[in-house]
Nucleic acid binder design. Structure first.
Length: 419
RNA sequence: GGAGGGGUGCCGGAGUGGUCGAACGGGGUGGUCUCGAAAACCAUUGUAGGCAAUGCCUACCGGGGGUUCGAAUCCCUCCCCCUCCGCCA
């Protein structure tokens, strides 16, 4: 979320950012914040003044009691009753407006970076560059679900029987390819990033910290005892330092993890969810960084390149998109998507999203660092990226490398891992 | 799941109703001493917030609520940790 102080001193900038994102209907939230903030501070000031009176009177009562002057003490106690009631009432006002204010703040998205292009729809995302070209085949290339079916790699039907649609079984070579990709991705990340095995369920506080809650319950599963199965490793990894103060010297901190990801994908349907295109459970290797505020945009580029290198090594044609203001995630200040070419479906599939959240998540999670040489703690910047999400890479690999006779081969980068 | 014991500042650890934001020790920082270092000594060392703002004040001793003129200290509740028993991969 944004800081109240920031909104208080830059209301116009926030309003502009909201309309830039195409959330013009939310612009009045800014005025609500300012008003609520005013009410809050007014009540707070008054409450604190009255509390001060009570505190000093209590000290006097203590002295009088010790001196044995019970009568004077009782007098004073009587006079405090009224003040106490007033403080209690003001306290109610304070907590009410705090609650209101925090609801409002959670409803205001991050401010887009100046380099974010204008636009409200997918069509206005900017293609930064392409690598490789969609290949031409001297036969009609098949979609991955047909190929995987022929080779017994993925069993969607039995997955649907045992769990439900979107929960496939990967069998034999399919399972092995999965394991190879996970290891390949992790091996590529671990020279820089610390490998982590995080909890796969998180609590509500963590889900709110990274921005899944409130409002995005439709995305996550919720299970008994208050747990959320992770929709991405971003959640446990970024919350790792929640409510902590780091040392500036420790920055940047780089974490990576392979986890399954569970998503409800409520409302998805049609041909675009066929096969591996959209699943309720999938695997992903995620990279996360906690950086100094000055460094985050350089780090964003580095993380993007890291993900791109993986696709290059897999010899898959891909394009890199810079998301326009309207397509930018709620918490993001700047975001790239990487899309691979699906030869069988003849369309681009998103396999990675790399984002800079600036201090937006850090403020929600209260993750700060103490500057070298002391001074007030400052918020870190957080970033994350998929490097990479598995199923669509599997789909693209099968489709891209298919041969007319129905055979296939995988890129040599995977050979050491396919054992 | 049952029984019991705990959660205090960067760390250890006092404190069971009245200047306690918190003794004492360690650590960190600054200084004195020294050619320098060590030792010793002195000083300093949390976070958030409000205001008429080189200062004053409020809140915070796991979280929330309550009792009281006054709570780190008493009560309720939740969370977490430890020990023993049970169960279990």
């Amino acid at each position: 979320m944004l800081g109240v102080e920031f909104i208080r001193s830059n209301p116009d900038e926030v309003r502009q950012a909201l309309s830039f994102r195409g959330a013009s209907e939310s612009v009045n939230l800014v005025d609500e914040v300012l008003e609520q903030d005013r009410i809050l501070r007014e009540a707070l000031t008054l409450q604190q003044a009255k509390q001060q009176e009570i505190n000093s009177a209590s000290r006097t009562v203590g002295t009088l009691m010790r001196e044995g002057n019970k009568e004077a003490a009782t007098d004073l106690i009587q006079r405090q009753k009224k003040l106490k009631a007033e403080v209690k009432e003001l306290g109610q006002t304070v907590s009410d407006s705090e609650e209101q204010l925090s609801k409002l703040l959670l409803a205001i998205p991050n401010i887009p970076h100046e380099s974010v292009p204008e636009g409200l729809t997918e069509a206005e995302n900017v293609t930064i560059h392409r690598h490789g070209e969609p290949p031409s085949f001297d036969f009609e290339p098949l979609p991955h679900w047909t190929i995987s079916d022929r080779h017994g790699m993925i069993d969607f039907e039995r997955g649907a029987k045992v769990a439900g649609a979107g929960f496939p079984f990967y069998m034999d070579v399919g399972a092995k390819l999965h394991r190879a990709l996970i290891n390949f991705f992790l091996s590529a990340a671990t020279p820089q990033y610390t490998e982590v095995r995080p909890p796969l369920f998180v609590n509500a506080a963590s889900a709110q910290g990274t921005g899944q809650l409130p409002d995005k319950e439709g995305q996550m599963y919720f299970i008994e005892d208050g747990f959320f199965p992770v929709p991405t490793a971003e959640v446990p990894l970024t919350n790792y330092f929640r409510d902590e103060i780091l040392s500036e010297a420790d920055l940047p901190i780089k974490l990576c993890a392979h986890t399954p990801c569970w998503r409800r994908e409520a409302g998805s349907y049609g041909a675009h969810v066929r096969g591996l295109n959209r699943l309720h459970q999938f695997d992903k290797v995620e990279i996360v960084q906690f950086t100094h505020p000055h460094a985050s945009y350089d780090v964003l580029e580095a993380m993007r390149l890291h993900a791109e290198e993986l696709l290059k090594a897999l010899e898959l044609p891909y394009r890199c998109l810079l998301m326009c203001a309207g397509e930018l995630g709620f918490n993001q200040a700047k975001q790239y998507d990487l899309e691979v070419w699906s030869a069988g479906q003849k369309r681009w599939l998103e396999v990675s999203s790399i984002s800079n959240f600036t201090d937006y998540q850090a403020r929600r999670m209260n993750i700060r660092f103490r500057p070298d040489g002391g001074g007030k703690p400052q918020l870190v910047h957080t970033l994350n990226g998929s490097a990479l999400a598995l199923p669509r890479v599997v789909a693209a690999l099968l489709e891209h490398n298919q041969k007319k006779d129905g055979s296939y081969e995988f890129p040599s980068a995977l050979t050491p891992y396919l054992t």
